[in-house]
Design a protein around this nucleic acid. Structure first.
Lengths: 165, 165
DNA sequence: ACTTGATCGTTTCAGCTGAAACAAACTGAC
DNA sequence: GTCAGTTTGTTTCAGCTGAAACGATCAAGT
């Protein structure tokens, strides 16, 4: 554009060429960076110590919390793909950390539960995970922690409606 | 344990067997769920429309923001693995959305920049991404948005120190 | 009982990811 | 100039992921 032209300030720029997006200030990007870093840091900790992958930890954690469940229920609660659950369950069963019992009332599914060895590992990982989370939140006040949880809830609700609706 | 035994309430349980971890109230898990959902919802939007993957979008976004950069700079800024950058750059170059110009002062690296076609797609995706983000944040007040950003900053700083230190 | 359609879980397959190995190019010490 | 060590970027390879196909089972209707 000729330098002598006079325009209502910024009027043209807005329509001809949008402002570039500052990635480092973009909420979806920031959220993803943070979550990835948090997830991987924790996963490295229990991965090194117990040879457990993220999906395997989630299966352990779900069974540790709820006791007996089917693979379907585990996937539903921890939002894992059924193939991911299937493979994590197979790996954990092979290592005898969980057992599979038939459901006579419905032979398609099976009841899964922690073995003693699985329970033992679960009770080693849980304090480690809690310590990590506590240490992560150590810089936050009680109020900020409540805020964070409220905000996550609001955003989760919001994104769910955006995805479906 | 024999049912008749009398114990100080809960004294043994606390040490013998930790409380099960409620996954749905566990911050690392909650953060990861939210970020995954947000990321994938946005990625589906521009993926369907332009056939662009997440790493490709990040390369486009970084070049759109900064103009000319090397692959190394892109990786550094967007925290992508160098192999991921390499492949995204190759794909975008093949589709003529970016160009590679030699750096005569250092022939190992190359200057990357958006082509006109790349700039055009960038300027189509940016408003879409902004609209998504705005819609995501629509349920949040101005104050809550500031809080969210502050909290993400604090947690990011915290997790970085936990990972390294 | 038979058929249809749905559901649970596994397997197959294609694509993505990152660690490691690698080639090419640069830097600094000698 | 040459050598050793570093840096940039690509390729290879092994592992993970999810869509699709599949087998097995169940439920409902006829």
């Amino acid at each position: 554009m000729a330098s002598g032209e006079r325009l209502p300030s910024g009027a043209m720029d807005i329509h001809a060429e949008a402002e570039p997006l500052r990635l480092e200030g973009f909420l979806p990007y920031r959220l993803n960076m943070l979550a990835t870093e948090v997830s991987q840091t924790l996963a490295r900790a229990y991965g090194r110590k117990f040879g457990i992958s993220i999906p395997e930890w989630r299966v352990l954690a779900t069974l540790g919390q709820f006791g007996v469940m089917t693979a379907r229920d585990i996937g539903g609660h921890s939002r894992m793909h059924k193939t991911t659950v299937s493979r994590a369950v197979a790996a954990l069963e092979k290592r005898r950390l969980i057992v599979r019992r038939a459901n006579r009332a419905d032979m398609r599914e099976a009841f899964l539960a922690l073995t003693d060895a699985g329970t033992a590992i679960y009770h080693e990982i849980v304090p480690m995970a809690r310590a990590f989370s506590d240490s992560l939140c150590a810089g936050l006040s009680e109020t900020e922690l409540r805020q964070m949880n409220t905000l996550i809830d609001k955003l989760a609700e919001r994104v769910a409606s955006l995805g479906n609706g």
